[in-house]
Amino acid sequence: MASQPEIRLRSRAAPADNPALPSAGPCTGSGTERHRAITIRRCATIPLYARLVRYGFRKHATYVWAALAGAFTNSVFGVLRAYVLIALWDARPGLAGYDVVHAVTFCFITQAFIGPMQLFGGGLTVPERIRSGDIALDLVRPASLQLWSMAEDLGRAGYLALARGIPPLLLGAALFGIVWPAGAGHWAAFLTAFAAGWAVSFAWRYLVALSVCWLVDDRGANAFSLVLTTPCSGMMVPLVLVPGPLGEVVRATPFAAMVQAPADVYMGTADVPRTLALQAFWAVALLALGALGTRAIRHKVVIQGG
């Protein structure tokens, strides 16, 4: 019977069914046996997060027209940027190891990233919930706020990758011609780099969102994030064009890991293992910072009462 092991797995995942573990209550403190019981359950609730991903996807799927409007705007900007880069590569063929088709592809793939990577910031409900005080309700749930937000954001990114990511690429292909990944290996590498870029983007936006807890006016934090993301990600101009040590620095930032890195993997102009390593480093580092931030917020909300 195929269903047998599945049932067993599930009963192991639910500590309430295990007489060896005490039941989890709201007064569970850290370091106790109960706390560890909850922690085990947290890791095992994959179905919960899978569901949250689906809800995130569905929530955004209700705004079809808004997504298509976004796709239209992203495509128009792609065309305008492409013309400028074509003019540059006309003047300097083969500049920075790209040919003119690469330059055009770069424009449209980065425009396609704007939706899923949420490059203009936001996309999370956390700041709103901190301001309204509802965050206290989120923090008492037996699930990590960070993972919860991440799951919802993955659903959002998935939907926007389809609705806002594909149209600019198709338009670019129709108007100018772009490069496509060759073969399954190349596609797999790109999808990995894309997912890693999204993880870095989420981790960064989560940190910006948490900052609302300590700042009066969150517009400052958002504008600050935009100031860093816009030029350092490669969204405006390929970072390979930035000369000298400045170029070295911007190409190593987490922002480059969101846009320039997956774009290079897509076009086959990247050293794949090195690029993925950079992305993985930033994803892990920023997510770890986010976990610390979540703990700090819980401390603040519990001690100061929100």
Binding site: V84, L88, M236, L241
Partner: peptide, 16 residues
């Protein structure tokens, strides 16, 4: 940053 992009482009060419 819009000006910066123009400057980056003209750092690579004298005429666009």
């Amino acid at each position: 940053t819009d000006v910066a992009v123009i400057l980056v482009i003209f750092a690579n060419t004298t005429s666009l």
